[in-house]
Simulated scan of single mutants.
Amino acid sequence: TRHPLQPPYPHPYRFLLNEPHKCRDRTPFLVLLVVTEPGDTVGRNVIRQTWGNESSVPGVSILRLFLVGVHPVFGPALRSVLEEESLLHHDIIQQDFFDTYNNLTLKTLMGMEWVSKHCPNASYVMKADRDVFLNLGYLVRRFLTKPKKNFMTGYVYRNTGPLRSKAYKWYVPREIYPNNTYPPYCGGPGYVLSADLAPKIYGVAQILPVINMEDSFVGICLHALGVGVTGSPWGVFNMYRIEYEKCRFSRLVMVHHFQPQELLKIWPHFQEAKVMCHR
């Protein structure tokens, strides 16, 4: 029997919104998968205008997709809103699982499934949360210059284990994951992988017991595949907020805990960094 916190998987989830032809006429260098909640129309619009803009890195083909599930309460009410947004922007994919914190793993697996089935020739995939500042130009220039295989990087956690107290949002009971430590994994707010890993992660997830910690589970999948994570230079992927400073941010890939409204304020100023700050 499945523990209530354990995401139901494998399961024949259906795509309610899909963009299966996105890669028919193009081969993106980077597929950007952004995790958002169904009702977060405003957040998605800000991301489209800022770091999620597909033209943000000159000469680099970026494909942006937002990953959503079904709102546990307002699913039917949000249906037409999401359909309208989808018709306008063609960048939302949705499956019929409930959009809850414990189902975040299902969102990432939906993204991996989509890349596997609809965009297998992409070079890289980046998964990002909606509450981050992202500098894709620096990511591409600094880390993705050569084609790579079996590659994943981000903020790497090593020798960490499940939190066993129910007081935590990140509670994982022994029935779901019995081991005391997780294999090394990249922190969930933002990590990047070579696209060849997407079908491998999606495939191995069909036979592993899924856990409710999305980033840890991706690490478990890599461990099962015999693939290691690649460490990144200290401070390039920031799990904690640091205050905005134009030239400092020009040498970072990600900073966590930036809300969309803050991004709107700093993004025009940050664009000057390309000219002003020494690379």
Rank of each mutant, 00 (worst) to 15 (best):
Y171W: 15
R2A: 04
I92C: 07
V140P: 00
T230D: 12
R79S: 14
L144R: 01
F270P: 12
N238Y: 04
R64V: 00
H89Y: 15
L193N: 06
V70I: 11
S123W: 05
T153A: 08
L87R: 15
V172K: 05
Q49N: 12
C277A: 10
L139H: 03
F151V: 03
E214Q: 11
M110R: 10
W234L: 07
Y124Q: 05
Y155W: 12
L134P: 10
Y9D: 04
E175Y: 03
E37P: 01
C221Q: 06
S86E: 12
Y138V: 09
Y101W: 13
N45S: 14
K274S: 11
P28N: 05
Y202V: 01
L32W: 05
L197E: 07
G59I: 02
P58T: 07
R130Y: 11
I47F: 09
N180A: 07
V218Q: 03
S250E: 08
L193C: 06
T153E: 10
I211E: 00
K200A: 09
I176K: 00
S86T: 05
V253K: 12
G231I: 02
D129N: 14
R26H: 06
P8N: 12
V31T: 05
R48D: 10
K127D: 00
V132I: 15
N102H: 13
G226K: 05
P178W: 11
K22V: 15
N135A: 08
L263R: 13
K22P: 00
Y185V: 00
D91I: 02
P72H: 08
S116F: 04
Y101D: 03
V132A: 11
H71S: 12
P147R: 12
Y240W: 11
P76T: 03
G43C: 06
T153R: 09
F237D: 09
P38F: 03
G39E: 13
P178V: 05
H90E: 13
Y182I: 00
E113Q: 15
I266V: 15
V218N: 02
G228K: 10
G190S: 15
Y101T: 10
M239N: 15
L82N: 07
H257N: 14
V227K: 08
Y177S: 01
V46A: 11
Y171M: 01
Q259R: 13
E54N: 05
A224N: 08
V73M: 09
C247G: 08
F98V: 06
P162E: 00
V35S: 13
L5A: 03
Q94L: 09
T160K: 13
V68N: 03
V70F: 01
P184V: 02
L78S: 04
L78V: 02
V35Y: 09
K169V: 13
R130K: 14
R44Q: 10
H223V: 01
K149I: 02
L252A: 07
G43P: 00
S80V: 08
M239E: 13
G111A: 01
S123P: 02
E37C: 06
P20V: 01
H269E: 15
P10M: 04
L263Y: 14
N238L: 08
F249L: 07
